[in-house]
């Protein structure tokens, strides 16, 4: 067969075959991935997106560390039943400061993209310490150590810096006062809450773990969970301008 004759050169020379594979995959990448970087329609225009506060970012790091994404997705798909259960479908804009994103693909537990504000801090604490205490049939493991572990804040400034390198718009002030802001958000009575509010206007600051004496990993994780999906103002968001 003539096709075989032309193909023979690939089949008999591994180097040429390798080059052929690289060329084909590159075409796929160029057509499917590269346009997402320059098409304006990739990321929707929204009101309200802001970078994570240092405490939320630390909480997000714990979320990643504990592998929450293996059982919880953070992506509400544009399907009616998901809209009715979870709220507005997730937008690309909502993950634009996520490095890496936490969309996940498995839902052993519910989707968490809009869990922020849905339950009280106390519920999150009880549930994280022992999920069975409030949800008797839950198969989620307990994370009681989060309430006991003091949050490691030594490298929080570097976390902000690294995110800034990737294009997250942290100001120099936000980076400089990262640690102070972290303490102030979890402990408004002791930290520099005025400075925090100036750098992160309108962001909730309270003892997320219910204990104002210390900044624990529980503070950070609950702060992160309580802001998930709450940033974009869907009153102002124009659905029809962002059809895909």
């Amino acid at each position: 067969m003539s096709a075989w004759k032309k193909h023979e050169i690939f089949e008999k020379n591994s180097l040429i075959l390798t080059i052929g594979i690289v060329v084909m995959i590159s075409i796929g990448g160029l057509v499917e991935i590269v346009p997402l970087y320059y098409l304006k329609s990739t990321i929707e225009e929204t009101e309200g997106m802001r970078p994570y506060t240092p405490l939320e970012l630390a909480g997000r790091n714990i979320y990643v560390r504990e592998g929450c994404y293996t059982c919880h997705s953070q992506q509400i798909r544009p399907l009616r039943d998901e809209l009715e259960r979870y709220g507005p479908y997730s937008l690309a804009a909502e993950s634009m400061y996520d490095r890496p994103f936490q969309w996940g693909s498995k839902r052993t537990g519910p989707d968490l993209a809009r869990v922020g504000g849905k339950y009280s801090d106390e519920w999150h604490r009880d549930h994280l310490i022992n999920p069975r205490s409030v949800s008797p049939t839950s198969v989620m493991p307990g994370y009681p150590f989060l309430a006991e572990n003091k949050l490691d804040t030594r490298d929080i400034r570097e976390h902000l810096e690294l995110n800034a390198v990737y294009g997250v718009p942290y100001t120099e002030e936000q980076i400089q006062y990262a640690r102070a802001d972290l303490v102030a958000q979890a402990n408004p009575d002791r930290g520099d809450i005025d400075g925090f509010e100036e750098r992160y206007p309108g962001v909730a600051a309270r003892a997320f773990d219910g204990d104002p004496s210390d900044v624990t990993e529980m503070d950070a994780l609950v702060a992160y969970l309580q802001m998930l999906g709450t940033l974009v103002d869907f009153e102002l968001y124009d659905n029809n301008a962002n059809l895909r």
Binding site: V31, V34, P35, L39, K40, S41, P78, N239, L243, R244
Partner: peptide, 22 residues
């Protein structure tokens, strides 16, 4: 909808949009 262009993408004759559908 399929091919990416310079500033947009071809939206296709059927005008399919998952978001509009939902």
């Amino acid at each position: 909808p399929s091919w990416p262009l310079v500033s947009d993408y071809t939206s296709g004759l059927l005008g399919h949009s998952q978001r509009a559908n939902v």
